[in-house]
Design a protein around this nucleic acid. Structure first.
Lengths: 190, 190
DNA sequence: CAGCTTAGCTGAACAGCGTACAGTTTCCAA
DNA sequence: TTGGAAACTGTACGCTGTTCAGCTAAGCTG
């Protein structure tokens, strides 16, 4: 352990990393669990993170940083499929985080915004240039990804396997994109 | 209060009702809150409900009971729109419950099953008769409704109003139905 | 280099949570 | 009428997030 006053050399990144580690081995994200993993008293975290809520936001955004953004030369529709599938896959890989993602509507962090901007740009290049059309498309696509991952991470995924899950997500994504992009095309035709 | 041994005349329905009341005035659904509203010790609820989890399931299913099922003579597509819109509206009216809905993937209660069966029947009459096609369609539609309501109930609905929210839900629903039903049509054409 | 400020950390504690256990009373069936 | 089950209370345990006061090491200032 450590006497009062002794420093542990923590940092915001270290705390976020420990939180991700805790979640990744299936434990619930409690302050005490994170602190324990760092060999530190629970309240020590409050020097680096604004409470549990803030820690969650940080973890969420940290996850999104890993998203591979499609190269701008490619076809925008396949780019969208790739981006959304990667997002969905990211959520599937961290089921413990999805409920918080739901509660915080995908977070508002730096990387969440990057994702939003990338989607907006791809949509624009696919012909969806209207602002509100872009927003609905983004909302609907994000909801689909998060919602699907949420029911996937549910304790009783039951008889449905992970592969069927991916398949049904892909199908829904195809339908949504068809709708969103056809609206764009219709407008271009005018 | 009440001496030990004195009965309070509780029932499963009364407990579920109190739970709904607690949620409806914005408080968190805690055993103690529900018990308090019934003038009863917290652990008294365990005689009528299988813990907090079970209570949540019961409340969820109780909500779904109110769903108006479309009359069977109407067009199946408009029936589906009506059914899904009603479900979405139900969720919007009870934002406190949505997170639990997400976590329990729409519940498995009696009325949830009724909803599933109704959707399946409408899909069949709309030409989607394949079993796995029906399942994906149902999954995707339910995810859209629950997911959308979840981000709607998020604390920071932010600049987006409830009307735009309903509009974007309707748009997404239209896209999804177009996809699902066109798949059915394609099959019928063979 | 000496002194002061500040930030990082500990220990203890509080309020609230779900729930298990034991005891008391009421109800119902045989 | 009597026995057993069911409904309820009181108490308590272990868990949670978070706050407060105290200690000390690090860093800045003169």
């Amino acid at each position: 352990m450590r006497a009062p006053g002794q420093r542990a050399g923590l940092s915001r990144q270290a705390v976020v990393g420990a939180a991700r580690a805790v979640l990744d081995d299936g434990s619930a994200l409690t302050m005490r669990a994170v602190a324990g993993r760092l060999g530190v008293a629970p309240n020590a975290l409050y020097s680096h993170v604004e409470g549990r809520e803030g820690l969650l936001d940080a973890v969420l955004d940290d996850l999104l940083r890993a998203l591979p953004f499609p190269d701008p030369s490619a076809d925008p529709e396949t780019g969208l499929v790739a981006l959304m599938t990667a997002s969905h896959e990211l959520l599937l890989a961290h089921p413990g985080l999805v409920p918080h993602f739901v509660a915080r509507q995908g977070a508002r962090g730096e990387n969440a915004q990057r994702l939003g901007n990338a989607m907006r740009e791809l949509l624009a290049r696919a012909g969806v240039d209207d602002d509100v059309a872009q927003n609905t498309a983004i909302r609907v696509l994000v909801v689909h990804a998060i919602g699907d991952a949420a029911v996937a991470g549910s304790p009783d995924t039951g008889p449905i396997g992970l592969d069927e899950l991916r398949a049904s997500y892909a199908t829904g994504l195809r339908w949504l994109l068809a709708g969103a992009l056809s609206a764009g095309e219709q407008k271009m035709r005018l």
